[in-house]
Design a binder for these strands. Sequence first.
DNA 1: TTCTTCAACAAAATCGATATACCTCTGGCA
DNA 2: TGCCAGAGGTATATCGATTTTGTTGAAGAA
Lengths: 342, 342
Amino acid sequence: MSGPARLRDVAELAGVSPGLVSRLLNGDESLTVREETRDAVMRAVAELGYVANSAASSLRRSRTDTIGLALDHVTNPLFRELVRGAQQAATKRGSALLLLDVEDLTNDPHPFTALINARRIDGLLLQGGYSDDAVPASYSSQLPTVIVNSPGDGTAAGVSLQDSLAAEIATAHVLDLGHRNVAFIAGADGPATEARYLGFRTAFVERNLVESPDLYEAGGWDARDGFEATVRLLERGQRPTAYVVANAVSAMGTLRALAAAGIDVPGDASVVAVHDPWFAEMMTPPLTTVSLPLYELGRASVNVLLDQISGEAPQDLIIADPPPQLITRGSTGTVDMSVMSS
Amino acid sequence: MSGPARLRDVAELAGVSPGLVSRLLNGDESLTVREETRDAVMRAVAELGYVANSAASSLRRSRTDTIGLALDHVTNPLFRELVRGAQQAATKRGSALLLLDVEDLTNDPHPFTALINARRIDGLLLQGGYSDDAVPASYSSQLPTVIVNSPGDGTAAGVSLQDSLAAEIATAHVLDLGHRNVAFIAGADGPATEARYLGFRTAFVERNLVESPDLYEAGGWDARDGFEATVRLLERGQRPTAYVVANAVSAMGTLRALAAAGIDVPGDASVVAVHDPWFAEMMTPPLTTVSLPLYELGRASVNVLLDQISGEAPQDLIIADPPPQLITRGSTGTVDMSVMSS
DNA sequence: TTCTTCAACAAAATCGATATACCTCTGGCA
DNA sequence: TGCCAGAGGTATATCGATTTTGTTGAAGAA
């Protein structure tokens, strides 16, 4: 009666054997019990507040019901919803999320490997897009792995968003406002950036327009990257009237760079970005964005991973519901404004 | 040879008993071994890449080497550094961080309690300031608990920052720029807000000035809270020339509200906030802030918690190194600017 | 009536690491 | 010679849950 109740305590209280209680609680199909017995056990469980000791259970089942979550910056604003989704899906399916330090991911030897060898996690959720491709592969051979926000790479399953479509919608928005001089500020190299650039070009093609390669600028995913990319573009003498930014966080940098250069938004130039984080509406000016279902991405990634852990074959997935949606705010305006003021 | 190596495998390879290997790896003081034997064991460990199965180890030692981390929004930008600090401290001391869903924290029955009863975590890191006081108490009676970013409440240890001093520095900054009409946009009710308001008043007192109670506006910690608080203040007819905002995230809302009201920053009003997140320099205008050592807070909180888990008495702590530091950016200017333009 | 066949459980063998309680030499000393 | 104290280990009993293999009694079949 000192620590928490053990299986044995429950069994004794209910007057049955521990094995019976275990089978009952785990829903063993091959078990037949009288209602009476079942009730007695359930009452004992409730009375003692019994919860199986996870260490013992893990040891026996060689399963930890824990999955590792490695995000480059857990606190990337975009990941708020993703983490929430992952968390809830995991909780719902009885698993916990272990936070992994991505800085460790690229160290050698991976302090990470210790976690895997210690059998502390059943599977791994890795953020795609940032890390180089070698990393996922080295893990996916050791345990079920799902790459979040990136298509699968053959070795590990991938769950991704409609990146291309989102960028296309963003681009279409400014094109339809009359802009023709449209810059693309890319994210870090990788599938997500490629997909978004594809969407960018598609919007042009569908309108029988031609984009200018001079207005492409390589960037990264954070605000400073967006800032620097935009500065480089301006220093190259380009003066686009609209910017499609691969990511709302780096769009913050774009806005800053434009403001610093004395370019008014949306007076002199429009800015639209992919993803709709909490701060978009709080920026000056409020940022026009195309939202993507990050919560669903988190949920789905966990589900795919847990399915894989339960033995299903790795399965790639693209989250299309809810679809990307344009959220018009103050950072975009018609080209006439730009032209007139310039 | 199928799964990962077990203690027994190592022992066999080294030609010793499993117990010896365990005692050696765990640094049993009462053990004496020949160099030769020690080497053989170490070589076997290295060769097999042996890492103790954590479930088995946990079961035996009744310790999971895992601590729960509950932050209101893990992805709150302010927590980026905090999480990094916590992560690194935990890793260094051999513990892992389990992400907890704070929404669950206030549910009843706590899905959380299951985690505790399942003995999945050795201790709990709770975010202070948000959650009401009853919550920490209900947990701290069940397992070691540390409240992060809040002074201890008697039942649980607390690790906090120099909130008062930070607010004082922020306030002193605008007072010294000549502002006298200074508003205080508070955070959510709680110790952190109280401390910061205290610092605000202290800056006035030390300069033999008197603050105006009319310029206090209750708020919250997120951007929308800051926005709404500022709007309320303006609707009350107040036109302060400077704003001290309890938190950099809500300061974003303040900036937005001012811009929306056509009040130029820093032309018509200055804004300074506590905490220096990544986006401060990317705002328009760049936000003047007072930084606080969040990384250290994370590190220290984990250390205090782990000490407590090892049996030390709960101990409150205030992180004072590095000290709060004023980071002057574009959102603050002398009062002359404001006066002249109005 | 005797053998099957279930229903309804119980017993016992794991899972892998750790900690405590033994052993077994060898050398030194009275 | 006999005894004792370490040095240098080994053997074994847990930790608590799960799972496989048994066991028992009673109802139906032959």
